[in-house]
Simulated assay, not measured.
Amino acid sequence: MGPQLPLALRYPPDQRFDSFIAPPEGALPALSSLAAMAGADWIYLSGASRTGKTHLALAVCAATEQQGRRAAYLPLAAAAGRMRDALDALEGHDVVALDGLDAIAGAREDEVALFDFHNRARASGLNVLYTARGIPDDIGLVLPDLRSRLQQCLRLVLDPLDDDGRREVLRDRAQRRGLALEDAALDWLLTRTDRDLGALVVLLDRLDRASLAAQRRITVPFLRQVL
């Protein structure tokens, strides 16, 4: 068996608390408490697609393991149809991030499995973070008891970033890669490409590779050539 990764390195270094741009007031302290303290408020984090829910879920797991505690991240889309087995495998952790409740909403057996897990986790002192695109009443859950449990969590809402926020995210991601991205190039990207933040970050990876291959800085003429 090979050497294990240092705990927090299992989570992407770009997706930490300190790289999250424009968090809602009080969100990072609440999420940090969830990572660090047994018995912290459970959190229900909602927001439209590409607002940073997965970023914060992974950041919570990394922060938990930096404290020497055990964390687990579960994207619920990957567990749909086998929730009970997937959730049973999470016993014994200190913090669990369940990302994307929408993926199992309406699947009664999966919802029952989640309801049972929620109750066991409460009784055992496990901390849980849920994420979803909407509030519990709006995502299509069919189990009233599960909805009522989720409504008892501390609720945080992520809003989409404006252009200034997107510019800050791209500048931060570029700096972390050691990539020089001129302001004019940033403006060009934001006015002529898909404004979806996830798509922009993927595009930045592509530009990073192209710039390395061509041994050129990312300027507006280079963007025109590559894109």
Rank of each mutant, 00 (worst) to 15 (best):
A210L: 08
L45F: 06
L156D: 00
G68C: 05
D208L: 01
L161T: 04
G81V: 07
T219I: 01
H55S: 04
R10P: 05
R84I: 07
V226H: 11
G52D: 03
L150H: 01
R82T: 13
Q15A: 07
D164Q: 15
D116F: 10
D164I: 15
P24N: 11
R120D: 08
L74G: 05
E109W: 08
V96W: 00
T64P: 03
R50F: 15
D110P: 01
W188I: 04
A86G: 04
T131P: 06
A71Q: 02
V60G: 03
A97W: 04
R209A: 11
L227T: 09
L76D: 03
I104P: 00
S124F: 11
T51V: 14
A8H: 10
A62H: 05
L56D: 03
G140M: 03
F115C: 02
D88V: 09
D94H: 04
L31E: 01
D205S: 06
P6M: 06
V202A: 15
A77M: 10
D145T: 07
D163R: 14
S49D: 15
G165W: 06
V96K: 01
L150Y: 02
A78I: 08
D162S: 07
V95W: 00
D41K: 13
P144T: 09
G92A: 06
A48K: 09
L90H: 03
T219D: 12
V60A: 03
R192E: 04
P160W: 05
A199W: 07
L5P: 09
A180W: 13
G125R: 06
D145H: 07
E111T: 02
G125N: 08
D99K: 04
D196V: 06
Q4H: 15
L189K: 01
I21R: 12
A184Y: 11
D88F: 09
L207Y: 02
R84N: 11
V169R: 00
D163A: 14
Q151M: 14
P75R: 06
F222G: 01
F117R: 03
L31W: 03
G68R: 00
L197E: 01
L179E: 11
D163E: 14
L76E: 03
L170K: 04
I135S: 13
S19A: 14
P23W: 12
L186F: 09
L7S: 15
L212Q: 10
A59E: 04
G125S: 10
S148I: 08
G125T: 10
P136S: 05
A22I: 08
A174D: 09
L101W: 00
G47H: 02
P221C: 04
L189T: 03
A36F: 12
R167Q: 11
R155Y: 14
I104R: 00
P13G: 12
P3I: 14
G39V: 12
P24Y: 08
A86F: 09
A62P: 05
D159E: 15
F20P: 01
T54R: 01
Q67I: 11
G140N: 01
L181Y: 06
M37V: 14
L200C: 11
L170A: 09
A121F: 09
L207H: 02
L146V: 01
R16L: 07
A107V: 12
P29C: 10
S33G: 12
A80E: 13
R82P: 08
